[in-house]
Design a protein around this nucleic acid. Structure first.
Lengths: 150, 150
DNA sequence: GGTTAGGGTTCCTTGAAGGAACCCCAAACG
DNA sequence: CGTTTGGGGTTCCTTCAAGGAACCCTAACC
């Protein structure tokens, strides 16, 4: 879709969108995360066109987010999250928290998260990796970093 | 772009993507967040086509993520984040953390976050909203919620 | 040796993205 | 008082990706 080259921008958001910048890719990632690893499973779960699914999977594999591996001596393949992909799932967890709050409506959230550590139904919250205190959009200053635009 | 109706899926990721499901919307959100509030500022900062920017802004306003308000007696308008939009910025902060780690390369991150509470350069980390312990993709079980598919 | 199933390709149509040009309105200028 | 300027868009055209249906290939299995 995008002819604009997001990956070249000096912006980690834009670069991430170059990996994952249309609606299907995050949903594919979610499917693989929850255990839909095979082409036909993902295709029928999402209702995505086979052509577009092929393209997206190739792209995600090229980007190192997914790994394609055989699971049979027949030519059968399944997709799995790499470490890079697994960490990207954190973004999905935040999307879920936001969607649950603002878009789920009266029906309530479609999926619940039970946290292993405490056993409770919960959701993610953003904290500072350094001091552990809450870290939300109003709690920070932005400074130019070493990779800022020339 | 998408003719598929993501907003109708019983999935908070898909619903969020219906609000924000192409590469420009998150970048527009970022621009407004960092203080580019006017049409021409955003357009020249991002290099987005004026037509597409108009469409995206309308959509984000309709979805309640941005607010359009006059700032002059002349017909001049600026865009601001609503509360709904500000909370969506949390997703961008997680995207930045991931992009900084996996895509910034040798040049380093383009932007740094200084946390008000501790004064340190830092990044977001995901914690359980209930118990405060780390909450990453492997730390949870998924259960069907009240809004699960019929 | 026909069938089945996974994992794709091919082809066509529709519709969004990109880009350039144009437009409208209200001050401010001379 | 006619003209310029600048913000905030629209219009039109071209190109390219998404959606969808049909088809293909390979390796078991019966």
């Amino acid at each position: 879709m995008q002819r604009t080259n997001f990956g070249e921008m000096a912006c980690s958001i834009a670069r991430t969108l170059d990996v994952l910048g249309e609606p299907w890719s995050p949903l594919i990632l979610r499917d693989v995360w929850v255990g839909f690893n095979r082409f036909d499973q993902i295709q029928s779960d999402l209702g995505i066109s086979r052509k577009v699914l092929t393209e997206r999977l190739h792209h995600l594999v090229e980007q190192g987010v997914l790994e394609r591996r055989p699971y049979d001596r027949r030519p059968r393949y399944e997709y799995a999250l790499t470490e890079k992909g697994t960490e990207l799932v954190e973004m999905l967890m935040v999307m879920v928290a936001w969607g649950d709050k603002w878009l789920a409506g009266a029906a309530g959230p479609p999926v619940l998260y039970r946290h292993h550590a405490c056993g409770e139904i919960s959701r993610v919250d953003l904290r500072c990796a350094h001091c552990g205190e809450p870290m939300h959009p109003g709690d920070i200053d932005l400074l130019p970093g070493p990779g800022a635009a020339a």
